[in-house]
Nucleic acid binder design. Structure first.
Lengths: 209, 209
DNA sequence: AGAAGCTGGGACGCAACCGTTCCGTCTCGT
DNA sequence: ACGAGACGGAACGGTTGCGTCCCAGCTTCT
């Protein structure tokens, strides 16, 4: 990607190829060194540009990373409504596994999650660009299953979403990098079987025996 | 904790109160600024000591944080075997919620998780001090439930552990800071009901209907 | 054609941090 | 009683990073 050598350089307009090259370099750098450790100089060096090219586009490192989040978000998981809960969940789990098993994406997600706990600016960007769309998509998935009667009508959406999104992500992020095929299968299966259990609190007591 | 003003200063032995003060300051600093952003000078300033006091104890920032992980780990969740699966799971979820809802602990856990993806030294310390003991304790919890027949004998331990540990942690870390009482209850209930579903893959096909 | 303005580079000022080394003070172990 | 050595504090050299500025070359828009 960085191989695209801009033929001639210099023009009266910000060149998209340069912007893209910089963003790609920033993603790589962010994955390797983390947000706090990432240096603008390193990004410029990696992109084969001057630092000025960066500051012509963004006012600061933070602004650049905020933009960068959208780039990572675009690699996000599309949640297709295949019209079947089993298939939808399987497809989702597999897609998350594929996406997040890329070490770069994994590092960035982990890093920004941590950084977002401190930096409200990043937190908001991270939330609107990644968290909310993902959650909304999964919510659509669940709602359509409810309409088809594949899930109970009194489903606790929050809980179900946490089960679907959380367990998937946790497994991928904590089972080392390689995501086994059978792991995807087992995870999907558990989620599918457990989703109907996410109903309103009901009585306070737990499960007999 | 930093209020303990060492009466007289200077002696031929490293004073424990100073060590403790420094570690407390380091925990606070780590929570606020993250590993990469944490500066030894800031830790010393916060602890009311000189930087020399730090370097007399640890050879580097990294070494200090490795030690520090043990301190955080000591606040970890004790998994008591109450002899009942329902009670054990509830107690565990509540304990995790209480521990991790401390913003400092939350930040540190998130931060070190991300940092561990890059720094093998930290990764190992984090793993042996926090991850493994927690996982082992939960494993004990599950095994004893199996022995009592409260869980199937062919339980998929990995999956069950991910369900128990992962879902709990995910909910706590992602539902904002405040952990509702009913949230704890709902989460526990789902886990308890879903645990028996964590059995070997069996047939490849999923769930009917 | 010509102005406008972006290009990769390099240099800069400023600040922060790391890790070391002093200092004078003070207290513990022997 | 006395030496060893930790104490808080300060300074230092070296490195690194941010953000700015300037440069000469080149390309696009008017």
């Amino acid at each position: 990607m960085a191989e695209i050598r801009p033929r001639g350089r210099g023009a009266a307009v910000l060149r998209r190829t340069v912007t893209d090259t910089i963003l790609a370099a920033a993603v790589a750098e962010l994955a390797e060194t983390g947000y706090a450790g990432m240096s603008m100089g390193a990004v410029a060096r990696r992109a084969g540009t001057g630092k000025a090219a960066l500051y012509r586009r963004w006012s600061s490192k933070e602004a650049m990373v905020v933009d960068l989040i959208d780039v990572v978000a675009s690699r996000q998981v599309p949640v297709g409504g295949a019209g079947d809960l089993n298939g939808d969940v399987r497809a989702y789990v597999r897609a998350v596994a594929d996406t997040l098993s890329d070490p770069a994406v994994m590092c960035i997600v982990l890093d920004l999650t941590a950084e977002a706990a401190r930096n409200p600016e990043l937190a908001e960007a991270f939330d609107t660009a990644i968290r909310q769309p993902r959650r909304a998509a999964c919510e659509r998935l669940l709602r359509s299953a409810m309409e088809r009667g594949q899930l109970p009508a009194d489903l606790d959406l929050d809980l179900a979403l946490d089960l679907l999104v959380g367990l998937t992500q946790w497994r991928v992020l904590n089972t080392g990098r390689t995501v086994d095929d059978s792991c995807v299968e087992t995870t999907s299966k558990l989620i599918i079987q457990a989703l109907p259990l996410c109903v309103g609190v009901g009585d306070g007591r737990g499960v007999p025996g």
